[in-house]
Structures are given as structure tokens and as C-alpha cells.
């Protein structure tokens, strides 16, 4: 049973650099879904040049432009990589979207041959094929856990998973990781990487609660998430399915 109201610590990484496609909606979504259940959230914003001030049960990072992604990569390796990896090793969860997902894999190779080091959370690497190759843009639907995920993708880099990586989902519509192997995103322990914007969590409430359950397994062992009324969430989910040309 749920005895006392749990507290969830969320670290929002580089909102000043990595919020290109309104990925901050994911943080809003997590906060509200916790508040509706009486779970207290403490969000620490980790901006460029900041160090993590306290531990976290859930990390969230969004996508950015090339320049900003470079700065975020510097900030991560200089100040926060070890701490984040230690927290993940101790069971913390993560949602890394688009550019943030790329930074959490081994490396990002840009079109001009430059290379950004990543944290290696996911056994994957990303290659930008050059500005002459079209970006992967459009509505995405993929199969996940016997259900579907919806979102919008917009990325130049192609991500290829290594032997040790699990894809998050299988692409039904859209490009996904690399427009070739029908995989989308990656999973490593309680960390999830994905190319889906939308923002992805509000209109995929099953994914939002999956992530909260992963994070709460550490923050409040034994706590069970009460169900919410998600009519509005599923209506938007169905609208995204229709936008992708699928029957809702």
C-alpha cells in the first residue's frame, strides 16, 4: 500500500541549451502527473556550466541545435558525466530525447567530420550523413510493449545501435533511429532514449507512467502508481495516429 507521499527528484539537464522542440513539455507532464497523485516533485535545472547540486531519481534532457549540443556535450563531460552515470548505476531513470539521446550514446559524428563524445549510457553512435542528405522529419508511430507510441521526429543524424543495445520500439510509420533498420530509440536499464517529440510524454501517458514507475522504484520502493483518467491524453494520442495516416 501507499503509506506516505513519495518525493521524486527530477534533474532537468540543460534546459537553456536543449529545448529545441518544446521538450520541456515532458517535464511539465511528469510534474503534473505526480501532483495529481500527491507525489511531490523537486526539479533541479542544470544549466550550462552548472554541476548537479543533488542526486536525482529521473533525468530529463531534450534536443538542441548543433552549437548548443556541442556546449551541452562540453558541460556534461566537464562537470556531470560521472555523477549522472553513478546515479543511473544506482537505479535512476532517464528520458533523453533527440539531441539529448545522441549525447547519451557513445558519440556523435557531425557532417564535417567533427566528433562529440557522449556518455555511453546507450551502446549506440550517431552519424550525420551531411547536409545534402534530407533530415528525418515527420510523424512517427512505433510499436512498444504491445501498444503504440506517437510523436514527431526531426533529426539529421542517424543512430545505429550496437550489439549491447535494446531498441525502445519498432517503427510503423516514419524513420526512427536511422531510416533503415526500423528501430526507434534505445533502452538501457531504466534509461530511455528516443527521437520522438510531441512533446512525447503527454500524448503517450503509458510511456510517462512507465518512466515514473521506473524512477519511483528507486525513490519509493513498493509504491504503486494510482491510475489516472487519461481521456484527453488518449484523444491526442489518437489524433497523432490519424496525422500519421493510421487508424486510431
Amino acid at each position: 500500500m501507499n503509506d506516505s507521499a513519495p518525493v521524486l527528484r527530477i534533474a532537468y539537464l540543460y534546459p537553456d541549451l536543449m529545448n529545441l522542440y518544446a521538450d520541456r513539455g515532458n517535464v511539465t507532464c511528469l510534474e503534473r502527473r505526480c501532483a495529481w497523485r500527491g507525489i511531490t516533485t523537486r526539479v533541479q535545472r542544470v544549466e550550462w556550466n552548472d554541476r548537479l547540486r543533488e542526486g536525482a531519481d529521473l533525468f530529463v534532457i531534450g534536443g538542441g541545435q548543433d552549437r548548443q549540443q556541442e556546449l551541452a556535450s562540453q558541460g556534461l563531460t566537464a562537470h556531470n558525466a560521472d555523477r549522472i552515470l553513478a546515479e543511473l548505476g544506482a537505479g535512476a531513470a532517464m528520458l533523453a530525447v533527440c539531441g539529448g539521446y545522441q549525447l547519451m550514446a557513445h558519440r556523435y559524428r557531425s557532417a564535417d567530420g567533427g566528433e562529440l563524445p557522449g556518455l555511453g549510457v546507450f551502446d549506440a553512435e550517431t552519424v550525420h550523413p551531411g547536409s545534402g542528405v534530407p533530415r528525418c522529419i515527420g510523424n512517427v508511430v512505433c510499436a512498444w510493449n504491445g501498444a503504440r507510441l506517437v510523436g514527431f521526429e526531426n533529426h539529421g543524424g542517424r543512430t545505429y545501435l550496437g550489439a549491447g543495445a535494446q531498441p525502445l520500439a519498432q517503427v510503423l510509420r516514419g524513420h526512427g533511429n536511422n531510416a533503415r533498420d526500423r528501430t526507434e530509440g534505445a533502452v538501457a536499464g531504466a534509461a530511455i532514449g528516443t527521437y520522438l517529440h510531441g512533446s512525447v510524454l503527454p500524448k503517450n501517458p503509458h510511456l510517462a507512467d512507465h518512466l515514473l514507475a521506473l524512477a519511483l522504484a528507486r525513490a519509493a520502493p513498493g509504491y504503486t502508481l494510482p491510475a489516472l483518467r487519461d481521456d484527453a491524453e488518449w484523444a491526442a494520442h489518437r489524433a497523432a495516429l490519424r496525422a500519421a495516416g493510421l487508424r486510431a
Binding site: A22, F152, N154, G198, A235, A236, A239, A243
Partner: peptide, 27 residues
């Protein structure tokens, strides 16, 4: 075609007397 941008809009500021939402992505 990407409606993500509405999550960057501070709709928290909206104080309508009545509110109707419509359009193809009303949901």
C-alpha cells in the same frame, strides 16, 4: 505539421471566461 510548439507556449497565462478548442489538432 509538428504541433510540438504548443508545449513552448505559456497557456498557463490564459484566463478565459469560456474556452472552446478546435481545428484538426483540437485534441
Amino acid at each position: 505539421e509538428d504541433v510540438s510548439w504548443i508545449w513552448d507556449v505559456d497557456f498557463e497565462l490564459l484566463r478565459p471566461s469560456r474556452l472552446v478548442v478546435g481545428g484538426r489538432r483540437a485534441d
